[in-house]
């Protein structure tokens, strides 16, 4: 057997085992760490397909950013693991239905003629072949419009994140320069009309005591 084939089976086996542990691990922190392991092995598989950019982007974006956030959330979040397990059997039929639907969809896509694994024989690329450049040539010319749409989706995500999580702090002492410039004398000082007060003679005040 060729060395690459051995590597492929090694990476695939670890990916499958790690993915299984993600959904069976009791501790959510362990599940997140197994997901990191699965991502690393999928990156190895992509590397075997000579898709270096995708492999490294997977590690940089998913392992480096997304999974760190996930770990951060599950480690810090105030969740009761025992209470989360309640209702497992009640939710199982719906979950199983959704899972089966997804498996069916994937099977249709992978076996259909659009994906066409049979039409793509594995080929050995020369040493100077760059998958990154091939990818970029398609992405930045034929798919330029979807590429710009992607930036709009990222913009929506930024605005949604700010809207959902931004809470003004009560003890915030930051200055608002526009408010300071727009302020008028009327806002700062109020002139009140009132009748003049008459000072009582000192003797009368003493008698009153």
């Amino acid at each position: 057997m060729e060395f690459k084939t051995i590597l492929f089976y090694l990476f695939s086996a670890i990916t499958v085992v790690a993915a299984l542990r993600v959904i069976t691990a009791r501790n959510p922190v362990h599940a997140a760490l197994f997901l990191v392991l699965a991502f690393f092995n999928v990156a190895g598989l992509w590397m075997l397909l000579q898709a270096e950019f995708l492999a490294l982007a997977l590690i940089m974006v998913y392992v480096g950013a997304v999974m760190v956030l996930f770990l951060f959330v599950v480690m810090m979040l105030d969740i009761n693991i025992e209470r989360m397990r309640q209702g497992f059997w009640n939710n199982l039929p719906l979950g199983a239905l959704v899972g089966l639907l997804m498996v069916g969809e994937m099977a249709v896509v992978l076996s259909g003629r659009y994906f066409g694994l049979a039409n793509l024989p594995p080929q050995n690329m020369p040493a100077n072949y760059s998958n990154t450049k091939e990818l970029a040539r398609l992405l930045y010319t034929d798919y330029a419009y979807p590429f710009e749409i992607a930036s709009v989706i990222l913009l929506v995500a930024i605005i949604a994140a700010v809207m959902l999580t931004l809470r003004g702090r009560k003890d915030n002492k930051a200055m608002h320069s526009s408010d300071q410039i727009a302020v008028k004398a009327k806002d700062r000082m109020r002139l009140v009309k009132m009748s003049p007060e008459v000072e009582l003679p000192a003797v009368a005040a003493k008698e009153g005591e």
Binding site: V61, A65, V68, V73, L154, I158, A161, V162, T165
Partner: peptide, 11 residues
């Protein structure tokens, strides 16, 4: 989380 999400988007 807000800072982390913003980091992921710009990443």
């Amino acid at each position: 989380y807000l800072i982390a999400i913003l980091f992921i988007l710009f990443d």
